[in-house]
Amino acid sequence: MTGMLQVVLHSVTTAAVHKRGGAMGGIFGAFSDVSFSDWIAANNGDPRSYRMAVDLFLRSCAGYCVATYVLGIGDRHNDNIMITKQGRYFHIDFGHFLGFMKYQFGVKREKTPFVFTPEMAHVFGGTGTPEFERFQTTCGNAFNVVRRHLHLLVSLFVLMIPAEMPELRHRDDVNYLVQVSTPEKTDEDAAISFNELIIQCMNNTFKRIDNTLHILKHR
């Protein structure tokens, strides 16, 4: 019956960015490719701060793509993801994890293994650019770092079973971590697989539809 609250100053939800950003702002702002890049530019006026913000967005985005994938974080709509004025991208509200995804009206809300949408890629130039390749490399490296510490991660989760969290009650629940970490693959193959997941997530439009419906419901 206790919890922890962290206040992150100078940050807004990505839903707020969607609603105010780009020519398609408002209800359909989630379909605007320039919503994130325009918001970062508006809060980082000089070229140096803008470059730093884009770099921070790229690295934090890569970290959270890997972290939410490995931990199986669910309920990833645009009110559960935030961004600071300096470009740091981060997730909040971790009520669903280890692959226990949220359903609404019998429909699974998560259609992709993690959130990576076109407006995120647009911040660092989109596919085919050196910065996008750097993002993919960063993701692959981060994924392999986690994989190398899989035994520690599993041990920590097993230690939490007595806490009786709704989605972590049995040792079998921890198997999710092992399955997604693909310990049987080489580092090179694991990085390639994660890069394929990035493209898969970016090409799936359901998250944008889900974000739009969330904006409509909570406007």
Results as ranks from 00 to 15, higher is better:
residue 93 D to A: 15
residue 121 A to K: 03
residue 60 S to Y: 08
residue 175 N to D: 15
residue 103 Y to G: 00
residue 78 N to I: 12
residue 77 H to C: 05
residue 198 I to Q: 07
residue 180 V to L: 14
residue 55 D to R: 15
residue 206 F to R: 11
residue 1 M to R: 07
residue 45 G to K: 13
residue 87 G to C: 12
residue 128 G to D: 06
residue 57 F to K: 05
residue 188 E to K: 13
residue 93 D to Q: 15
residue 98 L to A: 10
residue 177 L to G: 04
residue 148 R to Y: 01
residue 107 V to Q: 13
residue 113 P to W: 03
residue 79 D to E: 15
residue 161 I to S: 09
residue 160 M to H: 07
residue 137 T to E: 10
residue 14 T to E: 10
residue 208 R to H: 06
residue 162 P to D: 09
residue 139 C to S: 01
residue 182 T to G: 03
residue 97 F to R: 02
residue 199 I to V: 15
residue 131 E to A: 10
residue 206 F to V: 10
residue 132 F to H: 09
residue 170 H to G: 00
residue 11 S to F: 01
residue 200 Q to E: 13
residue 28 F to K: 13
residue 100 F to E: 10
residue 136 Q to F: 01
residue 81 I to H: 06
residue 10 H to V: 01
residue 19 K to N: 03
residue 203 N to E: 14
residue 190 A to L: 14
residue 115 V to E: 02
residue 70 V to W: 09
residue 103 Y to E: 14
residue 65 C to N: 14
residue 213 L to M: 12
residue 61 C to V: 09
residue 122 H to V: 02
residue 200 Q to I: 01
residue 1 M to L: 05
residue 163 A to W: 06
residue 25 G to W: 02
residue 211 N to P: 00
residue 180 V to A: 11
residue 116 F to V: 02
residue 41 A to G: 04
residue 20 R to A: 11
residue 121 A to Q: 05
residue 80 N to S: 13
residue 113 P to Y: 04
residue 97 F to C: 04
residue 129 T to A: 04
residue 153 L to N: 00
residue 152 L to W: 08
residue 42 A to R: 09
residue 6 Q to D: 01
residue 21 G to M: 02
residue 200 Q to M: 13
residue 104 Q to F: 13
residue 104 Q to S: 07
residue 7 V to Q: 05
residue 58 L to G: 01
residue 54 V to I: 15
residue 137 T to V: 02
residue 145 V to H: 04
residue 197 L to G: 06
residue 22 G to V: 01
residue 114 F to Y: 05
residue 160 M to E: 12
residue 189 D to H: 12
residue 171 R to T: 10
residue 130 P to M: 07
residue 213 L to Y: 05
residue 4 M to C: 04
residue 1 M to A: 11
residue 128 G to H: 03
residue 19 K to P: 04
residue 114 F to S: 00
residue 180 V to G: 09
residue 114 F to D: 00
residue 103 Y to I: 03
residue 162 P to L: 11
residue 205 T to D: 15
residue 49 S to L: 06
residue 125 G to K: 08
residue 172 D to M: 10
residue 134 R to Q: 08
residue 88 R to H: 10
residue 176 Y to E: 08
residue 218 H to I: 07
residue 139 C to R: 00
residue 54 V to A: 11
residue 212 T to M: 14
residue 124 F to C: 01
residue 42 A to K: 08
residue 126 G to T: 02
residue 75 D to R: 03
residue 39 W to E: 01
residue 161 I to Y: 14
residue 195 N to W: 11
residue 158 V to L: 15
residue 97 F to H: 08
residue 118 P to T: 07
residue 77 H to K: 07
residue 102 K to S: 07
residue 84 T to Y: 05
residue 201 C to L: 10
residue 162 P to K: 14
residue 54 V to F: 08
